[in-house]
Amino acid sequence: MLQVNDLHKKFKTTTAVNGVNLYLDQGESVGLLGPNGAGKSTTISMISTLLQPTSGDIRFKGGDVFKKPDVIRPVLGVVPQEIALYEELTAYENMHFFGKTYGLSGEKLKNKIDEVLELVGLTDRKKERVKNYSGGMKRRINIAVSLMHEPELLIMDEPTVGIDPQSRSHILEMVRELNRKKGMSILYTSHYMEEVERLCDRVYIMDHGQIIASGTKEELKSILSSEDTILIEVHQKSEQFIDQLNEHSLVQQIAEVDTGYKVIVSKGADVFADIFEIANASQVKVKGVHVQTPTLEDVFLHLTGRKLRD
């Protein structure tokens, strides 16, 4: 359905996208995972035909989207990272306006507005101006507007940034429903690995403008088949503790997490005794040590030496 080939985008002094290749099949839900500044939004802007690539091409159902933007625009829904709405207008007026720009009118338009408002759970608040909405409600209307014309392909750029858990959960559930029940193809970008893990069949991991890994979740996690992820929970953190762990021959990566440290070690390595010994030497009190099932976050850590939200 969507094919991106060797996509590059250079700005004056930086290369935002550097040879990205990806594809998306009909009905698939694909994640684009990467930290802020990885080039996800630039890639999406090019797929959405808003930004010309420096080189490379993007094909939708075989057609070049830059030579003929109309092959993709009528069936493309894009949820931008920003709240791209008229805040002085009500939710209903925003949906009415964008619905009309998509060519809907009359009863069809009214019915569609009601249907989408129901889907995003804002039917009762439809007559309030968007500027009075909470962050989560704005995000939901931001998505609703993109669904007015029943797109075949929905691109969502960090749709849950900065919102409350309840709205986040609602949005994730809605995306899953759109994909599973309505068969909508979804390209979902995020730096929240748990969202991508929950929603997507396949994942592209992006960093510094490049795709550094791709595949199904299981395929990506198998990258860590020869490693274990160990979570060390501590009372207080210590630079000396990290330095000494780094010097350990079996430790491959270390990242700070809220409760302590996440350490990737060679699979089956018996490092528990060493961890406690280093902790003692660094005067760090250990609350607990757990071996974890690898996550996409761990894969990213393994590949880049950084956390997704660094």
């Binding site: 035909t49 625009r73 894009v78 791209a84 709405l85 008229y86 720009t101 060519g103």
Partner: peptide, 13 residues
């Protein structure tokens, strides 16, 4: 600035 213009252009306007 609020990306509404970009959104409008994507509707085919």
């Amino acid at each position: 600035e609020s990306h509404v213009f970009a959104r409008l252009m994507m509707t085919g306007a």
